[in-house]
């Protein structure tokens, strides 16, 4: 079946089985591979994208439910918050293998968009679902706070 979605500002028509998760449509059909597959069961957050502005585990949303939706992936992350987050991530060398980090960054951007000055507990609460097998957590906490500083300045 054909579905239309707007991805990173560009309108796309994709042909896919209606049950195909958005994750695989992005990766296999649209070749937007910044969004990662880590578990497929909503347990790691590596696949986090924004669907109609809401941070969403794309492995859980069948493409039929995303018909007409606006989707933003890491490749399309733009704006002051996104920039601050990416800059903070670089400054603090948060990444190790990096495989979870698109998801971490997408979650961090939406956290800061809702709460520009999160404390440690806020960060832990919000980022809980983004697993990092390399255990970069303390740098993630520090980088979210650094991004918040950058945003304020």
């Amino acid at each position: 079946m054909n579905f239309s979605i707007t991805v990173n500002g560009i309108k796309k028509t994709v042909e896919a089985d209606p049950e195909t998760p958005v994750l695989w449509v992005l990766r296999d059909n649209l070749r937007l591979t910044g969004t990662k597959y880590g578990c497929g069961v909503a347990s790691c957050g590596a696949c986090t994208v924004y669907i109609n502005g809401e941070p969403t585990r794309s492995c859980q949303v069948p493409i039929e439910d995303a018909e007409g939706a606006t989707i933003t992936t890491i490749e399309g992350a733009r704006g002051r918050v996104a920039q601050s987050v990416q800059q903070a991530w670089e400054e603090l060398s948060v990444v190790q293998c990096g495989y979870c980090q698109s998801g971490q960054i997408m979650s961090a951007i939406s956290l800061l968009s809702r709460n520009p000055r999160p404390d440690e507990a806020d960060i832990n609460d919000y980022m809980w679902g983004n697993a990092c097998r390399c255990a970069t957590y303390q740098r993630i906490r520090a980088a979210v706070q650094r991004a918040s500083e950058i945003l304020e300045s």
């Binding site: 990766r27 296999d28 070749r31 591979t33 910044g34 969004t35 990662k36 597959y37 992936t73 890491i74 490749e75 990416q86 991530w89 670089e90 400054e91 603090l92 060398s93 948060v94 990444v95 990096g98 495989y99 980090q101 698109s102 960054i105």
Partner: peptide, 21 residues
């Protein structure tokens, strides 16, 4: 001195084997 692979890993541009197509 930070890591050499920061940029591509924070933008989603880094290529992993899973990204081959």
């Amino acid at each position: 001195i930070g890591r050499i692979d920061n940029k591509e890993k924070v933008t989603g541009a880094a290529k992993y084997a899973m990204d081959m197509h």
